[in-house]
Amino acid sequence: MSENVTVKRINGEILTDPSIKLNKRRTWTKNDWILLLMASLSIVFLAVFAYAPLYGLILAFKKDHETKNILSAIVYGSWGSYGGLEQFRTFLTDPEFGNIMANTLGLNILQLMINFPAPIVFAILMSELISDKFKKTVQTITFFPHFISWVIFGGLFLSLLDYDTGIVNTLFVKVGLIKEPVDILGGEDYFWPIIIITSLLKGLGWGSIIYVAAISGIPSELYEAAKIDGANRWHKIRYITVPSIAPTITLFFILSISGLLNNGIDHIWVFQNANNIGRSEVLDTFIYKYGLGMSNYAYATAVGLFKSVISVILLVSGNFVCKKLSGRGIY
């Protein structure tokens, strides 16, 4: 589509020289070669580091536990039953499959609804701060939690929310807000909110960087002009800021949709316990327990492959929907 535009423009400028027009169609210009060379850097890189190792996926169709040498298992291991689909079958017929998928998707959709827009709102609010000094300080400080691992960051919450000794329960009981301590960490209903809130606290500042970068790229003349036209703050956000960063938003939205099956395992791990397991067991923790934990690498590979296929489907459909709705997609 846009190719036409370019062609048209070049045509428009150099219509008087038909020879160049011919060149454009038949032979490649030097710049075409340069561009292709630049792009093929990625092809060379990916051929070595991404495509060459792909034969490892064969493992998903093999039996496991025949050898400790995974390479031998990939190459010579015997094929799984059910036409090599043994591992997939085991996974899909697992009694926990439904629950795990529900948890994974539920938690991720919730995150998509809350944790995806939050950094955007945060970045916009930050851009509206009147003091530059304060803005800088906020930007720096809100990155801090990103550098503390989940084990430590989560550990802080575990001790704050503890049923017996946590400050939250103790305080609320003392004030008289609640009579009995609330089992926040153990309650199944609390697990998703805990994950959402903690990832907001830890990731809001960090996640907003890209939007801050996008907003800072908006020319200030636009705002000045709007001001002269009598636009208020809301108008400026609605008609300048948001449309300007819309491509960025679409891009990251599609990328997040394709990641719907991924949960940060470290994060879940910290808050998962015997009491909330019904809501906290997600695909990633499941693969870890039954695949890697049992040295069942064929199984882990198969579930991983399943995840990949779903992710690609989600990407394609997410992109399709976005294109229909906003006219933008990532390809």
């Binding site: 990625s42 190792p53 490892g56 394709s258 390809y331």
Partner: peptide
């Protein structure tokens, strides 16, 4: 597309290690 697909598919650690 050659680029995009690699975001989702990986052959696992061992083949990567061998490379």
């Amino acid at each position: 597309w050659i680029n995009l697909l690699t975001m989702f598919f990986s052959g696992g650690l061992i083949p990567y290690f061998l490379v």
